[in-house]
Write a protein that binds this DNA or RNA. Structure first.
Length: 860
RNA sequence: GCGGGUGUGGUGGAACUGGUAGACGCGCCAGACUCAAAAUCUGGUGUCCCUAGGACGUGUCGGUUCGAGUCCGACCACCCGCACCA
């Protein structure tokens, strides 16, 4: 007869029961308030990692808690199944992406199920299946009809050896990851969605998303980057071309000392045609990858066109025109006015190419260094950086003496009056490029015909499915070289035509899956309008901060264009958002400097060795990654300690928004606690009155104290879960179980406390809670039980102990009635020996009493 | 480079809107049980001087306040994102 808790069997048993009773299957129910809990769906890489466990545990706590609160909770799961890793697996191991992906999904589904998540698996979606992606092909055609989707040229990373497009991730130090060849920027015709048309709405709405973390809202606002500025042109001295620039710092127009153009700016191309060295320079510019980071970090390079531009407000001054690698044609006008005195990037460029610095805003530093600079200085005036703050305009003609804001107004007015400039609003946000030159994605339903140009695939021919017979033996897109797939007849004229061989960016799939879960088997529509109306928006979305900008912005945008195409009646997909931190682990290296898995390391006190007894170096605690081998396998963990212990540990130590350090001792501690809880109920079992027995008429002090603890926990745990402070919720559950563990007294009170405990721990450790609920004699399932109610009368304290300070330093503490007045507090405080001692006989100058908080006696 | 964040004992963290810093864990120490060990249970545990008590203490430096982990300014360290990884 073992009384020990059989974790594996018990957990399996409850999962089977939930499954049999379809406990988590939901449908629309107008009698109940709905609650939509969604975690970012996983990419099916093959195995779940601890980051997934954290994500889905957090969501499950919320889902189970809301369900106990009486909500009709929808909590679905699916697979973000298109993407690069499947193609890499195909290249490396010869496995077909479809097979590889579906096998991974099966493996990961089993792993996720073993976590005991309260998921409605009947709503599972897989984005690489045609019954999912057919709907986005239809939506794309609608976007095209409405002018939201369009085609234009844009830059990609090009590997000149493999003759293939590289993802930014595949560019390492400017070189292709497989070939090592220097990457080039190359122009390609690609599809875009006009997210810039929605910039204003996306900006205005994000400001109102008060269920989102402030930091994410700020990041999105900055990403959209609305600015007010002026667009105007510089004429050239010896050429008829004009150079249009956009600037938000038109106040510094008298400080312009050069103009820079993008290498592929039409004016640059024209002016420099045939100029010695220009072709080389353009090639050098194109040698940087397309990522903003790479461009910003690259050494600034310039090429003098030899031409001079004329400052429209100071026609006498002729300023050099250069071509530079830090200006991009995609941004603004592809030309920038250089103001090295007041822009750090321009300053660095000027310092390197010995361009003059003309300070036009006075501040302490510039006043010392430039007395009366009239605009022909040829040095940096000893300045070490640009001055970007406010100040008084100097060396600036009619705006001298104004501050920055006044100067902006005056210059803008002047340029408008002269009819050479316009005041404009500009966004940093660029249109969303959705074309990918890859096989494993959703085909773009477009046909190119020599006669009819761009022809949408007729709706009756949807979905355009991926051909299965593809090979990955050569670099590049297999669709491109498929013998038959791309050759079709033009739907309009019947002539020979070609399919688009690009596929969608995988952000396309993840931009609307939240809708698909509401109606996952609908064959006609992405989602029926009324179903979306019932379930949307998502009350609680949970995922990593790494998605703070791109995925979340695209999903918000997609919701708005689906709305405008008549699919749904929803403005914002996610009203509540929580961004979790990473999971980290210590790193280990053997004596040869090779990374070691935590399971290959033996820690004995402060000695760390490998399996052969060789010393191991313990490195920094870092984000779990395969490359550093500092990973633990959730399946191993759940096998050894059970899902509840894994869930508990994930929740207990760190606040969810911060990084979580996975430790062996931590998971062991959680496991011990799971067993301890089981033992507490087991020990109490026989001494308890039956469930539902009558409440005694009065309680002794000990009983009252336990009741207080239980009711306080009900309130506290609910508050903590709602504010996502799961670590505090766990601490409160532990406090309650500590109080129960030391309690000896009335059985009714003990049962009350135990039942509260079991209900409070249920969202965190659902298998154990269900088992304990049964051990307490209940026939119902805990998943169907309501969250306990607390008695507010048990939460108020009659007396409080507060600190007494003398001149701000704590000297004593006093216990007072909670509603004691200042007189009582003063009397009690001044009666304390230690208070008298530190007053040193001096008079009370000020007496501060904050009821329930503190007394501060100020003397001297 | 630009944008966003984090920093509290040996350790993960707690501290409500400025009011007794260290809840709850992990680790460690001591005790109980045991022939012994493991497991379990009980107690202790910021540092220093150690005396009932005191001094110091929330990344660093400065400020506001009767009172600062919390507010303000400057700095340091580390982390995340940067549009084709998802």
């Amino acid at each position: 007869m073992s009384s020990r808790y059989n974790i594996k069997e018990t957990e399996k048993k409850w999962r089977r029961i939930w499954d049999e009773r379809e406990s988590f299957k939901v449908s629309e129910d107008s009698t109940k308030p709905k609650y939509y809990v969604l975690e970012m769906f996983p990419y099916p890489s093959g195995r779940i990692h601890v980051g997934h466990v954290r994500n889905y545990t957090l969501g499950d706590v919320v889902a189970r808690y809301r369900r106990a609160q009486g909500f009709n909770v929808i909590h679905p799961m699916g697979w973000d199944a298109f993407g690069l890793p499947a193609e890499n697996a195909a290249i490396e191991r010869g496995e077909h992406p479809d097979k590889w992906t579906h096998e991974n999904i099966d493996a990961m589904r089993a792993q996720l199920k073993s976590m005991g998540l309260s998921i409605d698996w009947s709503r599972e979606v897989t984005t690489c299946d045609a019954d999912y992606y057919r709907h986005e092909q239809k939506m794309f055609l609608d976007f095209y009809k409405k002018g939201i989707a369009y085609r234009r040229e844009s830059m990609v990373n090009w590997d000149p050896v493999d003759n293939t497009v590289l993802a930014n991730e595949q560019v390492i130090d400017g070189k292709g990851w497989r070939t090592g060849a220097p990457v080039e920027r190359r122009k390609l015709n690609q599809w875009f969605l006009k997210i810039t048309d929605y910039a204003d709405e996306l900006l205005e709405c994000v400001k109102k998303l008060d269920g989102w973390p402030e930091k994410v809202r700020i990041m999105q606002e900055n990403w959209i980057g609305k600015s007010q500025g002026v667009r105007f042109s510089f004429a050239l001295e010896d050429a008829s071309e004009k150079i249009e620039v956009y600037t938000t710092r038109h106040d510094t127009i008298f400080g312009v000392s050069f103009i820079v153009l993008a290498a592929d700016h039409p004016v640059a191309q024209k002016l420099c045609k045939g100029k010695p060295g220009f072709e080389d320079f353009v090639r050098k510019c194109q040698a940087t990858g397309t990522s903003e980071e790479a461009i910003e970090k690259a050494e600034k390079l310039g090429f003098d066109t030899g031409f001079k531009a004329i400052n429209p407000l100071r026609p006498k001054s002729k300023i050099p025109v250069l071509v530079a690698n830090y200006v991009l044609m995609d941004y603004g006008t592809g030309a920038v006015m250089g103001v090295p005195g007041h822009d750090q990037r321009d300053f660095e460029f000027a310092a390197k190419y010995k361009l003059p610095v003309l300070p036009v805003i006075s501040n302490e530093r510039s006043e010392e260094k430039s007395q009366d600079n009239q605009g022909d200085s040829s040095h940096t005036l000893g300045m070490t950086e640009a001055y970007t703050g406010d100040g008084i305009m100097i060396n600036s003609d009619f705006i001298n003496g104004m501050n920055v804001e006044e100067a902006k107004q005056a210059v803008a007015a002047k340029l408008v009056e002269m009819k050479i400039g316009t005041v404009t609003t500009q966004f940093r946000l660029r249109d969303w490029g959705i074309s990918r030159q890859r096989y494993w994605g959703c085909p773009i339903p477009i046909i190119y015909c020599d006669a009819c140009d761009i022809v949408p695939v007729p709706e009756k021919d949807l979905p355009v499915t991926l051909p299965q017979d593809v090979t990955f033996d050569k670099p590049g897109n297999p669709l491109e070289r498929h013998p038959t797939w791309k050759n079709v007849k033009c739907p309009k004229c019947g002539a020979a035509a070609r399919r688009e061989t690009d596929t969608f960016d995988t952000f396309f799939e993840s931009s609307w899956y939240q809708f698909r879960y509401c109606d996952p088997h609908n064959e006609k529509l992405p989602v029926a309008k009324d179903r979306a109306k019932y379930w949307m928006p998502v009350e609680q979305y949970i995922g990593g901060v790494e998605h703070a900008v791109l995925h979340l912005l695209y999903a918000r945008f997609f919701t708005k264009i689906m709305r405008d195409c008549g699919y749904v009646d929803c403005d914002e997909p996610f009203t509540g958002l929580f961004t979790q931190g990473m999971v980290t682990h210590a790193t280990y290296k053997d004596k040869d400097g090779k990374w070691l898995l935590p399971t290959d390391v033996i820690i004995d006190g402060d000695k760390v060795k490998d399996k052969n007894g060789n010393p191991v170096t313990v490195g920094r605690i870092e984000k779990m990654s395969k490359s550093k081998k500092n990973v633990v396998d959730p399946e191993d963990i759940m096998d050894t300690y059970g899902a509840d212990a894994a869930r508990l540990f994930i929740l207990s130590d760190s606040p969810p928004e911060r990084d979580l350090e996975w430790t062996e001792s931590g998971i062991e501690g959680a496991w011990r606690y799971v067993n301890r809880l089981h033992k507490i109920i087991l020990d109490a079992g026989n001494n308890l009155p039956a469930a539902g027995a009558a409440q005694p008429s009065n309680f002794d002090d000990k009983s009252l104290a336990l009741r207080r603890a239980a009711h306080k926990a009900v309130k506290g745990v609910a508050e903590d879960i709602e504010s996502f402070q799961m670590n505090k919720a766990v601490a409160k559950v532990r406090e309650l179980s500590n109080a129960i563990g030391t309690y000896e007294g009335d059985g009714w009170v003990l049962r009350e406390a135990l039942e509260v405990l079991v209900k409070l721990m249920n969202p965190m450790m659902p298998h154990l809670a269900e088992e304990l609920w049964q051990m307490l004699g209940h026939k119902t399932l805990l998943v169907d039980e309501a969250w306990p109610q607390f008695d507010a009368g048990l939460l108020t304290q009659e007396t409080v102990t507060i600190g007494v300070q003398v001149n701000g330093k704590l000297r004593a503490s006093i216990t007072l009635a909670a509603d004691a007045g200042e007189g009582e507090a003063r009397e009690a405080a001044l009666a304390q020996d230690n208070v008298v001692k530190f007053m040193e006989g001096k008079a009370v100058r000020k007496f501060i009493y904050v009821p329930g908080k503190i007394v501060n006696v100020v003397v001297g």
